[in-house]
């Protein structure tokens, strides 16, 4: 079971790397191995294969952290709390990566590293939420209290995230696709001309994109699994040392 996961991760990511780097971006793609040109984006369009999965993963990681937090509150099994923290730890890493990659791309597409565009802001807020989660954990020594309170905080914070992900970008003016824009002709604020998630992506790009999403998600699960096993080992060794 495990080895299937590992091999799949290896194959998929290798495939994604090849399929995203090699195909050139041309005006009129003639076969599967050529990507269409999007004016204004050109070569940078390939970022979508890597930047979006990191953002997706950080949200998934947070969701998992919250779910296992809830499970801890129900079962009182500290093992669930370990799963929760390791997911959060991975989540904050991916959050950094998402913010960083988005920022680099923003520099070359829209002019500066940071714009306070609603979506940029929301990924930054997610970073703050993660930070607050770990700040809370480090302030608590008693392991039961720590697990309980951080689970609760993760629930409360999760309740505010739909606001940042779904509502804010639609209510405020922004650069990301899907936000309000300023109509160039009338100077008024209007609804977006680009859909939030471009499902109009070309067929072949769409395939690579979903492959990438799957590949990174599987990679996350592997890393998460390793992470909480290490935590559990540490815990077991500590309790064994204390007993002997």
């Amino acid at each position: 079971m495990k080895s299937i996961l590992r091999i799949t991760v290896f194959v998929l990511i290798t495939l994604v790397l090849i399929l995203s780097i090699v195909p050139p971006i041309v005006e009129t793609p003639k076969n599967f191995f050529e990507f269409p040109l999007i004016p204004g984006l050109e070569d940078k369009a390939k970022i979508i294969f890597f930047h979006v999965p990191t953002a997706w993963l950080t949200v998934i990681a947070y969701l998992i952290a919250m779910l296992y937090g809830i499970r801890f509150l129900k079962t009182k099994d500290i093992y669930n709390d370990m799963k929760s923290v390791s997911s959060a730890a991975l989540g904050i890493v991916f959050c950094f990566l998402a913010t960083l990659t988005g920022s680099v791309w923003a520099k070359f597409t829209w002019g500066s590293f940071w714009h306070w565009d609603p979506r940029e802001t929301s990924i930054f807020i997610l970073l703050l939420i993660y930070g607050a989660y770990f700040a809370l954990r480090s302030a608590l020594d008693n392991e039961e209290k720590r697990a309980r309170l951080s689970a609760i905080y993760s629930i409360l914070a999760f309740l505010t995230t739909p606001f940042f992900i779904f509502i804010m970008p639609r209510l405020m003016i922004g650069l990301h696709p899907g936000a309000l824009e300023i109509d160039p002709t009338t100077g008024q604020v209007k609804a977006s001309s680009n859909p939030v998630i471009k499902f109009e992506m070309a067929e072949n790009m769409r395939v690579v994109f979903f492959l990438s999403l799957t590949a990174f998600t599987l990679l996350f699960f592997w890393l998460w699994n390793l992470s909480y096993r290490v935590l559990r080992l540490k815990y077991k060794l500590q309790t064994e040392m204390q007993e002997s």
Binding site: I125, L128, I129, G131, A132, A135, L136, A139, L140, K145, L149, I152, Y153, L156, A157, T160, F163, F164
Partner: peptide, 27 residues
């Protein structure tokens, strides 16, 4: 109020409160 309840159980006063409350209050 609810965040105050959480940090009251943690023994670090002051600085933890705005850190926890800010993302929740931001909307």
């Amino acid at each position: 109020t609810i965040i105050a309840a959480i940090i009251a159980k943690a023994n670090v006063k002051g600085t933890l409160y705005p850190v926890l409350a800010f993302p929740i209050l931001l909307p």
